[in-house]
Amino acid sequence: MSEPLIRTRSLAKHYSMGDTEVPALRGVSLDIDRGEFVAVMGPSGSGKSTFMNLLGCLDHPSSGEYWLSGQEVSRLSGDELAAVRNRKIGFVFQHFNLLPRTTARDNVALPLLYRGATAAERHDKAMRCLEQVGLGDRHHHQPTQLSGGQQQRVAIARALASDPMLILADEPTGALDSRTSVEIMALLQALNRQGLTVVLVTHEQDVAAYAGRIIHFRDGRVVEDRANAPRNAAGDLTAASPAGAS
């Protein structure tokens, strides 16, 4: 039996507001296996963002345990967490978070900069990742010269550049129109089929429908965790293309 990629046990997080402790996450225990495509849903304040930050090693839990591919990361120092983020996790953000006035290639190569790769290695890897998201010919473009969908693909290429085990996508379609959203979901599904584990946060039912498992958060707890027969985004695209032209 293989251990799950993600294992949390009673994971909790409190924020202190003045002298009162505000609980954001009240103890979450769940496993996510390698190769899963999970959608995390819930209203704002439900703790889903806090959960994602903890999964992404961007924040320290107040209590509980978090194991990522067999490594207990909840007790690591800031620099050790940075190394985990650099090697194991790829992030995709709602607002892309690309560096302005920087070419797509250099944006994609950014994670490699922090693991001491040579310029040639960074260049080659970035080009391969851009080709993987279908933007090999746009490598010298700056973010302002790209459409929203293209920018998000560059961001996905950047997440791929670090050869992660896990892609964490925080509302990746939140700033995109519906057709482009389906394109991005098709890309994420394709990556998932190649073996990448994807966890995405969304509040849109349509987007969550492409995931194989949907977890609902409310008041800092998991209230629903169910399997889902995923829609095929690529299929939706071909079905929609005649209509999309109108």
Binding site: D79, A82, A83, S162
Partner: peptide, 16 residues
């Protein structure tokens, strides 16, 4: 600040 946040997210240590 956001640029710094992004760099940290993709693996920059405080030292970097």
């Amino acid at each position: 600040t956001r640029e710094i946040g992004l760099r940290m997210a993709v693996g920059a240590r405080s030292r970097d």
